[in-house]
Design a protein around this nucleic acid. Structure first.
Lengths: 223, 223
DNA sequence: GTCAAGAGGATTGTCAGACAATCTTCATAT
DNA sequence: ATATGAAGATTGTCTGACAATCCTCTTGAC
């Protein structure tokens, strides 16, 4: 029996389905930041009842992907640059640690997987599909985080990256950002492949810092 | 006008009230780990309807304070030592960072506040009320985290500490643990008061590591 | 006596409909 | 132009319902 296989087959419930759909919608920028979500409207669009929708909204609220103000209802939070900075700082803390640990303990198969995901990002980077870029980049990180040996680190990181997906989409479409991002990510992979913890940490830190700078640039240019 | 005052008066909704009540109940160990929560039962006890309760449960699920398995319903997760270790590791990462930053930027008033909370813990430590110990210790950390200049760091840390409240209550009642915890915390305060970042980081790391060790001891002894 | 099978009750997932409280908007009056 | 107020929209919350699923306990077979 494999070490970590969950035998329980969990039927997908309406609420899970709804959370996933809405999360994806938020990621892809379907809703404007600051815009309100009307329950009745979402219900008819999703074809579900209001109690089910509201449960899903509570889940998303706890993930900080939406805000719910009493008597005003749910809305997409307008992420301030101040909060975004805070998120990038914590992301740096976690991602650097994960990359370092990953360099020491990743398996050959997972390393190949990581290289594959880098190729996927490379392909996306040469296209103009910024959603694809964000998605493949997310795959890349998730492999690193999944191999750092700490599931909680992984989970927290995922939550943080989700919240800045808005910025990431925008900064990816910045002139040349996808390409330099690719170079930084390649450096991380090389360090991990070499089993060099310190180099992995350093490359990872560089990458996050540059991503943050790019996000800032994209924000200054647009707002 | 004070810098950071939220003018909006938010009426407390049933769902918020419910989340708070249940969270407190979980913290104080009212529910056994692994035990199931029966919706109808909770509804009558709390005097609320099932939709409201279910919304609250979704919030708690997202905080990982309860688990909800489709068609089995909500239950208190039995925290494995493996996961607890992972939480302690991330907590270390965050708390050390926060203590270091705090040493550089805390205001005199907040420092006094921190010292006050240390006294409160001191008092609790000499009693046998382990819930009070956990609560006052939580206050202590929250002041440090609130003054690290990063609200996201604070938020993530709070979430993690909440999940190990079970362990903390148990390890606090370990022979002598409250007293040595007090000594470690005092060291942190002194380093912060001196504005010594490195010392604050070191003391903070020591504290988390010892807390983890104590948690492990309390677990080995009991299960 | 132990184990397998099945029936019945308990519990959850989901929906529909309702209504008061609150917010929002727009027309009206000053 | 600004303040007032009323109508409409939206949310917060409840009740009641029913099918699907799970759990438990009895029964029967070996």
């Amino acid at each position: 029996m494999p070490v970590d296989f969950n035998f329980r087959i969990s039927p997908r419930t309406v609420q899970q389905e709804t959370v996933d759909k809405l999360r994806l919608a938020i990621f892809s920028g379907l809703f404007q930041p600051g815009s309100r979500l009307i329950e009745s409207q979402l219900c008819t669009e999703l074809g579900i009842s209001r109690p089910s929708l509201r449960e899903a909204l509570r889940s998303l609220e706890a993930e900080r992907l939406i805000e719910i103000v009493p008597n005003r209802g749910p809305s997409i939070p307008a992420l301030s640059w101040e909060v975004a900075t805070a998120i990038y700082e914590v992301r740096e803390l976690l991602e650097v640690e994960a990359a370092g640990r990953c360099a020491l303990r990743i398996s050959p198969e997972q390393l190949r997987e990581l290289e594959r995901s880098l190729s996927a990002f490379e392909q996306a980077a040469s296209s103009n599909d910024s959603l694809a870029q964000v998605m493949t980049a997310a795959d890349f990180y998730s492999i690193i985080l999944a191999n750092c040996g700490n599931p909680v680190l992984e989970e927290v990181h995922r939550g943080l990256v989700a919240r800045i997906s808005f910025f990431r989409g925008r900064s990816m479409s910045l002139e040349g950002r996808a390409q330099s991002s690719l170079a930084e990510m390649r450096e991380i992979v090389e360090a991990i492949a070499a089993g060099d913890e310190e180099a992995a940490r350093k490359a990872s830190r560089q990458h996050v810092l540059k991503a943050k700078a790019a996000a800032k640039r994209s924000m200054d240019g647009a707002v």
